[in-house]
C-alpha cells in the first residue's frame, strides 16, 4: 500500500515538473492600462440622466417623478429623442435577422427549445425548418414523430432570429441551406457584445477553417467544407475523422477567439484572421499563456490600426 502511494507520489511530482507551467498570482503583470480620464457620458444605476421631459425612455433607463434615471452602468446613447444606456455585458438581446448558434434543450410538440444564451429559451418551430432533402410541403403527423431524428437534445444548430415573442423570447428559423445542424467542430462562448454586426457572419477563412460568429456570443469553428453540394442543412453529417492539421488550425483559432475576448476586442473576420496570423509565431500550446496572448493581441491590434478594417 505504502509503496504504491509513494510511487504515485513520485510519478505525480514528475508529471508536475514536466507539464505544469506555474505562475504566481503576484508576479502576473497587470495588463490593465492606466485608467484614462473618465468618459464624459458615463452613468451608473440611479443616476439622473435628464430632468427634461421631452425625451423618450429607451433600454437601461426608467422614469420616476418626471426624471429619467439610468438603471444600468454604461454609456448614454442618444438617437434624436430616444435615450438608451448600454451596459458592458448582458445576456443576448435578440434582434430579427441575427445569426445565432444554439443548442437543442428539449423536443416538444411541433417545436424545439433552444439555448441561445438569451434571457429565455428560444423556440424553433417544426414549421420553420427545412425538411431533409429540401422538400416543401405541409408538416404532417409523420414529421412530428420524426422530430427527434432531425434534431435531438444536445445537438448544435445555426439559425436566424425570425421574430420576438411579447415576453422577449426568440423564435428561430433555419429556412436556408446555410443554416441547420452543425456537425464536427468546436463551440466557443464569449460575451455577445464583442461580436461586431456584419453583413455576413459565416466566414471561410484562408487558413483552412470556417467560422460562424453568432450574434449571441457563440462562435462555431469547423473545418471548411468545400463542396457546394454538401449544403443539405446538416442532416447528412460527415463523421469522418478530421486530419490533425485541420484540428490544429481549429485549436489555434479557438485560442485566438478567446484571446480577443480576454482583451475585449471586437470579433469579426479581419480581427480573427489577423490574430490568427500573429499567433503563427508560437505553437498552438503556447497560445493559451497569458503573456503570449497579450503579445499576439498587440501585434494584431497594430496591424488592424495600420491596415484599417
Amino acid at each position: 500500500m505504502i509503496i504504491t502511494h509513494l510511487n504515485l507520489g513520485i510519478l505525480l511530482t514528475r508529471i508536475w515538473r514536466s507539464m505544469v507551467d506555474v505562475r504566481i498570482a503576484g508576479a502576473r503583470s497587470s495588463t490593465k492600462p492606466n485608467v484614462s480620464a473618465e468618459i464624459s457620458n458615463l452613468v451608473t444605476p440611479g443616476d439622473v440622466i435628464t430632468a427634461d421631459t421631452g425625451f423618450m425612455r429607451g433600454h437601461g433607463t426608467y422614469m420616476e417623478d418626471e426624471k429619467l434615471y439610468a438603471s444600468v452602468a454604461g454609456v448614454v446613447e442618444r438617437v434624436n429623442k430616444l435615450i438608451c444606456v448600454k451596459p458592458l455585458k448582458t445576456r443576448y438581446n435578440g434582434e430579427i435577422g441575427d445569426v445565432v448558434i444554439g443548442r437543442i434543450l428539449e423536443v416538444g410538440t411541433r417545436r424545439w427549445k433552444v439555448d441561445t444564451h438569451a434571457k429565455l429559451d428560444s423556440v424553433l418551430m417544426l414549421s420553420s425548418v427545412n425538411l431533409p432533402g429540401g422538400e416543401l410541403r405541409r408538416r404532417s403527423e409523420e414529421d412530428e414523430k420524426m422530430m427527434r431524428h432531425y434534431l435531438k437534445e444536445g445537438d448544435l444548430i445555426s439559425a436566424e432570429v425570425q421574430s420576438l415573442f411579447s415576453d422577449g423570447a426568440l423564435s428561430l428559423h433555419t429556412r436556408s441551406l446555410k443554416y441547420g445542424k452543425l456537425s464536427q467542430g468546436q463551440l466557443v462562448s464569449i460575451s455577445p457584445s464583442l461580436i461586431k454586426r456584419r453583413k455576413t457572419h459565416f466566414h471561410n477563412l484562408p487558413c483552412g477553417a470556417s467560422i460562424i460568429l453568432g450574434n449571441n456570443g457563440y462562435v462555431w469553428i469547423c473545418p471548411t467544407i468545400n463542396e457546394e453540394v454538401e449544403q443539405t442543412g446538416g442532416y447528412e453529417q460527415n463523421l469522418e475523422p478530421i486530419q490533425k492539421s485541420d484540428r490544429e488550425v481549429i485549436a489555434r483559432l479557438r485560442n485566438c477567439v478567446l484571446a480577443l475576448a480576454e482583451h475585449k476586442m471586437m470579433l469579426y473576420d479581419t480581427s480573427v484572421l489577423y490574430t490568427f496570423e500573429a499567433s503563427l509565431r508560437y505553437s498552438v500550446k503556447e497560445t493559451v499563456k497569458p503573456e503570449v496572448m497579450a503579445d499576439i493581441i498587440e501585434v494584431a491590434q497594430q496591424r488592424l490600426e495600420r491596415e484599417g478594417t
Binding site: 485608467v35 468618459i39 452602468a73
Partner: peptide, 15 residues
C-alpha cells in the same frame, strides 16, 4: 464601478 466601466469601454473604443 465608474473606473471599471471607463477602463473596459476605452478598450472597446466605445467612448
Amino acid at each position: 464601478v465608474r473606473d471599471h466601466v471607463s477602463e473596459v469601454s476605452t478598450v472597446h473604443g466605445w467612448e
